[in-house]
Every structure is written in structure tokens, then in C-alpha cells.
Amino acid sequence: MTRRRSARLAGSLTIVMVVLTLGGCGKDHTVPNGTARTTTTQSPNAASAAAPTTTTTVPATNVSTASDHLPVAAARAAARLFLVGLGGTQAPPDVLQSFAQHEWGGVVLEPGNGVSPQQVADLIGTIQGTARSAGHVPPLVAASQLGGERDAVPIGSRPQADAATPAQALTAAVGAAKALRPLGVRMVLAPDADIALAGGPWEGLAFSDDPATVSAMVTSAVAGWKVGKVAPAPGHFPGEGAASGDPSMEAATVGLSLDELKARDLQPFAAIAKHAPAIQLSAATYVAFDGVTPATLLREVVRLLRDDLGFGGVIVSGDLAAASLTGGDSIAELAVRAVKAGVDLVWIPGDVAAQDAAWRAVVRALRDGTIPASRVADALARVSKLRADYGVE
């Protein structure tokens, strides 16, 4: 961290602490050593429970009692676990048919999906209108929004790394949220909470190479998004600043021990774990765990986030298409493993066939008991609370 950035950080501390208190952000940036905690979830909202079932046929299985403990039938419950993507700036017929057939939990917009705010609003309106016409609750709309060219919705934001103080990070997040919410966006895959290590995938893109600075900046940005009534989902837990490559583009490994992660990369997540409504997992593999399985599929990673850091919000998977680059397993198989591990929303970018195959796999796993119904009910309760808190109706 440069002396200039250190001075700016110190100079803005008093103002930022006042704003963060109003935004609901705390001060504890310490990574605990592993004390288990119990989290409490809320029941899905009545509107979600009352919507009719989808019309797509699901292959029969020998066991069907798993759905007895779900708030809705297994086919609908499984669909609500998915965040799906699409290619281009319009929803083609196969995408609209998918939204008519499945009560998808949400849709993720990425760079390339948006050319103007009005076009994005029209795209969202078309997708949500299709879902409502089919009798579904509307999908949660999320956007990958890290500023500049990394924005899914072009609203003129500066790149995240341009913020020099926590106050600037907060102001930028509030402004972006106020621009996105009227368009129908209710969640962002932002801010980035990784460390900007030299040679790492987030060099020049993340807030800083100093964990304390990143913690302060991410805490402020999370507060800003919340003030603007858009749910932030910071990533990429447990930190991929030291990854061997960009996990969204290639199989990448983080070669740090768990102690090394706790000493640096986990600090920003510890700072916001009690206050972020959602956190996104990494698609990288980690030597700290088994070295071969993407973090987004690991129960140990979920336990670290839930039990050690005390996170009670929605866990969003990493990009499962990217995760499939490691090991060669199908996206459908990875979806089942992610849900079993404790992921609440599974993200699959724009491939309708892969999304449908993954949904079918999760339905089968629910019906034969591979995925406990209680695990899905717990996920749906968290997602339902987030939807209610951020006005997804």
C-alpha cells in the first residue's frame, strides 16, 4: 500500500465509520479459529409457496418422499436453487421457453448482456414477464458489476480499483445501486473482496494489495450497496488473489495454506461476514483443502464461511461452467455437489441445455435422497429472506 493511499485511508476514517454504522457494517475483521455457531433461517414467503408447478417433465425415480419436507414440489424447489445466464443482449426463444418451463431462482447478467440501461430494463422486463405469464414468481435479477468495462449494465461507473478511500467506495456503490434498482436489478456479484497481488488475476482490479485496506474498502462498498437497496454478493471466497490464473477462464489453483489464507485473504470476508446478505464462492482449487476440487464444491469451505466466520446469508456458487474446467466433471454433476456442499444459489452461465441438465440432476438427487430435502429447504429459506429484504416480488 502506498503512503498516499495510507494517508487517504486514515483521513477518511472518521466519516466512514459513521456511515458504516448506519449501513449496518461492523468492525470485527479477525478470522476466528473455528468455533461453531448455529444460524437461524426463516420460512419462504407465502407468495413463493403459492405459485403453480412447472410443466417440464422430470424423469421418474424410485424414491419420491424427499419432497415431503420441501415448501414446494421437488421440481420447483430445484429450479429455485439456480441462477442462470444468457448470451447476448436479447432473450432468444429457447431462453424464454426455459423461463416459462422452469421457475428459476434468478438470472445473472454479465458484460455483453447490456448496451444501455433502457435495453437492460427491457431485457429484464421480457424475462420477468415470461416468468409471470407462466405462473412463476419472478426471478431475482443479479448483475456482475465491478465498474468500467467489467459492468454488465453500462451505467458509467468507474472501475472498482479507482476508489482511493472507503468513503469513495461507499459513494460509488450507493450511486451504482440507485442507477440499477429502477431497472429491476436486485443483486450484484460485487464488490470484489480479493487481494490485488502482483501477478494474480485481480492485480489492478481489486481494491488493494493490503488486507486491511481491502477490508475497509469492501466493508464500505457492501454498506453502500445495502443503502441503495441492492444486495451485494462479494467474492470470491476464500480469496483467489493468489490464484495461478483467472478461475473464470482456466483451471487455477491457490497454493496457500489455511493459515496463510487466514492471515491475509480471509480478512476482508471476516470484515463483512456478519453484514453481507450474500457471498460468492471461488471456482479455483486450493492447496489448503484437497488441491483438486473447486472451492465452490467443498463442504469444508462452506463450514469455514458459516461456522468460523459466522455468515448467515445466501451462499452463491462460483461459475460452474468455469469449475467444470477442473477435473472434467459435467456441469450437472457439479450442481448436485455444490448444493450438497451447502451452496444456496447455483450459477450456470448462458447454456440452456446445461442449465436444464443440471436442474434434472438436482431433481433426481432430491427425489432419491442424494441431496437431503432439509438442505434445499434451508437454502430456499435464505433465498426467500433475501428476496423479501430487497423487494423481489
Rank of each mutant, 00 (worst) to 15 (best):
A271K: 01
F207Y: 15
L123H: 09
D210H: 14
A77F: 10
V314L: 09
K226R: 10
S215W: 03
D94C: 02
G135T: 00
T61K: 01
P182F: 03
S257I: 06
V346C: 02
R306M: 02
T30S: 11
V31C: 03
F237I: 01
D28E: 12
N33Q: 14
G148L: 09
A295W: 00
P117A: 09
Q160H: 10
P32C: 09
S257K: 05
R367G: 11
A198C: 04
E300F: 12
A365L: 06
A284P: 08
S67M: 08
A74M: 01
Q267N: 04
S64A: 13
P294T: 07
G135P: 00
V302A: 04
Q355E: 15
D68F: 07
Q168H: 11
A243V: 03
V287F: 04
A284N: 11
R367E: 14
A353N: 07
L261E: 07
T40L: 07
A36D: 02
P211H: 09
A134M: 04
H136D: 00
E110P: 00
R181H: 06
A233H: 02
A212C: 09
A212F: 12
F207Q: 06
E103L: 04
G88F: 03
P44A: 12
D259T: 15
A143C: 05
R303F: 15
A163K: 03
T38M: 02
S208E: 00
G129Q: 02
G34I: 12
K27Q: 10
V346I: 04
S116H: 07
D94M: 02
T370N: 05
A251W: 00
D319L: 01
A284V: 03
A78E: 10
D389E: 12
A233R: 00
A358F: 06
A36S: 07
A373Q: 05
S116Y: 07
T40D: 04
G26V: 05
L258W: 13
A273K: 03
R158K: 13
G391S: 13
R360V: 08
L170T: 13
R76E: 15
G88R: 04
A49L: 15
V302Y: 07
D151Q: 12
A143Y: 08
P234A: 01
R3L: 13
A152Y: 09
I127K: 05
Q267M: 11
A164I: 10
D344F: 10
P111M: 05
G224D: 15
S67N: 10
G200R: 08
